[in-house]
Design a protein around this nucleic acid. Structure first.
Lengths: 142, 142
DNA sequence: TGTGTAATTGTATAAATGTATTATTGCCAT
DNA sequence: ATGGCAATAATACATTTATACAATTACACA
């Protein structure tokens, strides 16, 4: 509920990009234990206002930290510290592996009554789309 | 009288919107026959509480499924499975469900940094296993 | 039996929040 | 100078949430 206040300053003349400075500061706060799993970070707009930068710059830092697995940004909900790299996380990450992902996918498809041919067919189709467009089909319906 | 309990979990990190995840899960339950005509779904507030989500998000999923003709939401009364799942309907739902599953799968794979070739390769492998053994590889072989 | 009132349930609208796309800026190598 | 490129900003958009509202039901009580 309570948003962790993040207090630090930027050096606009240092030559290191703002988004990198933001990333570093958050990484350090996590390393020091000032931010722990589940803590909510300021919204991109709030932090941007505090730091007097455009919110897209904060969003960029958040996005990269998300990809790095340190935080979790959730559309419409906010941004949270994800997890420290404990065994728990390792397990989670393992579950996130491509292999595990595939197995769970096929398992679900099987439970839906799909045949191997059905699955291969639709995967082939979608993969083709992916190759052509550079991105997989959006998870929306047509 | 008895409200069908719906049990599933959401992935807030996946990047696929909550309301789509809810829609897919309900579609799948109908496709599998776990929900049939007349069954009452949890109220928007109940399901929202279970899923730790705002009830408007559930309402959005319900509204879209209502517009699709799968369920019937009634102001002040509740939400019910609408269609008599004819073979045709089931077939359609399975197709939609499989489609949704596949898209979310590829979306996740993409997010993990996999290339189309990576995905196709590992899917091919597992599908082969499936054909040979009659069942897909178990999802949690640790 | 009727009726008023509270509780339950879905709806409508706006605010909060992150995302995607495009434009602008500033720097550096040529 | 200038063409290219990374960083930042501007703008429009999608998703989720907050809040107030409307329809229906449950129930007490006359």
């Amino acid at each position: 509920m309570t948003v962790k206040s993040i207090k630090f300053s930027l050096d606009f003349r240092s030559g290191t990009p703002i988004y990198l400075q933001i990333m570093d500061q958050i990484r350090q706060m996590v390393a020091k234990g000032e931010l722990v799993q589940g803590d909510q970070l300021p919204t991109v707009r709030q932090l941007a206002t505090d730091l007097r930068v455009n919110f897209n710059t904060v969003a960029r830092a958040y996005r990269l930290l998300d990809q790095a697995g340190l935080i979790s940004t959730q559309h419409g909900r906010g941004t949270y510290i994800w997890e420290e790299p404990t065994d728990e996380t390792i397990h989670q990450l393992r579950q996130q592996s491509l292999d595990g992902l595939t197995r769970r996918f096929l398992h679900e498809a099987h439970r839906l009554g799909a045949s191997p041919e059905d699955v291969l067919s639709i995967v082939d189709q979608s993969i083709n789309y992916w190759k052509v467009n550079g991105d997989p089909p959006k998870p929306d319906l047509d």
